[in-house]
Simulated assay, not measured.
Amino acid sequence: MKRSNAAKFAAVTAAGVLALTACDSAADDGGSGSGGEESASGVKVGLAYDVGGRGDRSFNDSAYRGLEQAVEELGVDAQEFEPTDGEAESAKVDRLTTMAEEGFNVVIAVGFAYDGAVREVAPEYPDVDFAIVDSEITDIDNVTSLVFAEEQVSFLAGAAAALSTEEDHVGFIGGVETPLIQKFEAGYVAGVAHVDDAIEVEVDYISQPPDFSGFSDPAKGREMAQAQYDRGADVIYHAAGASGNGVLEAAVSNDFLFVGVDSDQYENAEEEQKPYVLTSAIKQVDVAVYDLIEAASEDTVEAGVQRFDLASGGVDYTDSNPELIGPLQEQLDEIKQQIIDGEIEVSEKP
């Protein structure tokens, strides 16, 4: 038997989750959003953030940009749901259940940590279109999996680092040592070796499962980056969510190069930080989220796995800092094309 709405809302509140709006126009009216109103498109979207929440300048913020675009261009009603640090799996189940019960006909879970919750909740609401970012679910008819070739773009990040290091010593910092983040590590290390296998690569993870705080601890990110720099690394790439903000702070303090992830972290950086951002290995989470919502508005959502790679433009490196990345682009684009053509195969595992 499903619990009452009141019980589920109580559970969500107890988990410390704050529902926010993605509709800036609604906020202009002084309210907290239009979560209960009828949208112009008839589509009501709920988006549940990963560890760290909105404001990480990385993964979650990319998902938000896609949601915001859908609100502005498609007229959908949207509401955001924030996680709490160290929350139990039941909080994720309650969050998704609340959305489905409250009339959200599109429910998007951002991050592989929602895999179990989506598997539990989605079959109970077959008329709701569920989507999950960074996890493959193939056996539920109303779930779309939005996944990315992180290893391919990380290979380019590694090549860029290898072409930029002056010390023949670079670093990688992962948020939490999971198979997903190991894809970033694998691609990065392989990309460095492709350019020069004599370059030393530092590899560290901030936390180990089931501790996911490694994605939301900038202080630990800064401390770990400082340690890698002290050991000789002069270019550091992170796949650590909001913890990467600490890595960038360390880069500025110590005058080494930073490689961002998921979003264009040059564009998101403070002005004094921008000169230290070599490039970012971006995942077009915003595009994937927007396209899914657009399909929902047209009643054309397809379940199954949607994979975004270099060939499709779903992942890529950024050239926002031309002074640093400009001299490398010809070489990086050649490597990129070799990956697309299958001449270079990038492993997903370290």
Results as ranks from 00 to 15, higher is better:
D115A: 15
E120N: 13
L96Y: 01
V43T: 13
R119P: 08
G66M: 09
S58H: 07
V110Q: 00
A48G: 10
T97F: 06
G36C: 12
L47D: 02
D127P: 01
A91M: 05
G33Y: 08
Y64R: 08
M99V: 04
L74W: 02
V121W: 00
A131L: 02
E101R: 14
K44E: 10
G33H: 08
G111H: 00
A27M: 15
S90V: 08
I108M: 10
A100E: 02
S41C: 12
E68S: 13
D28E: 15
D127W: 04
D85H: 13
Y125K: 05
A117I: 11
S25H: 14
G42W: 06
A100M: 08
T84D: 05
D115N: 14
A122Q: 02
Y49Q: 14
V45K: 07
L47Y: 05
T84L: 05
V110I: 12
V45Q: 03
A131Q: 00
E89W: 04
S34R: 14
G33I: 08
F104D: 04
A117G: 05
D115K: 15
Q79K: 15
L74S: 02
N105E: 07
K92M: 14
A78N: 01
S62L: 11
G42Q: 09
Q69G: 08
I132L: 01
Y49P: 11
E82C: 07
G31Y: 14
V43W: 00
S62H: 04
T98G: 13
A109F: 08
R95F: 02
S34G: 15
A63E: 00
S62A: 12
D85R: 13
P83R: 00
A117T: 07
S58A: 14
A131H: 02
G53I: 09
E80C: 14
E120G: 09
Y125G: 02
A113H: 08
E72H: 10
V110K: 00
A78K: 02
E80S: 14
L74T: 03
E87I: 09
L96C: 04
D77M: 15
V121Q: 00
S58T: 09
G46I: 10
F112H: 06
M99E: 00
A109Q: 01
A109Y: 03
F81A: 05
D134T: 06
V106K: 01
V107I: 11
Y49K: 11
S62N: 06
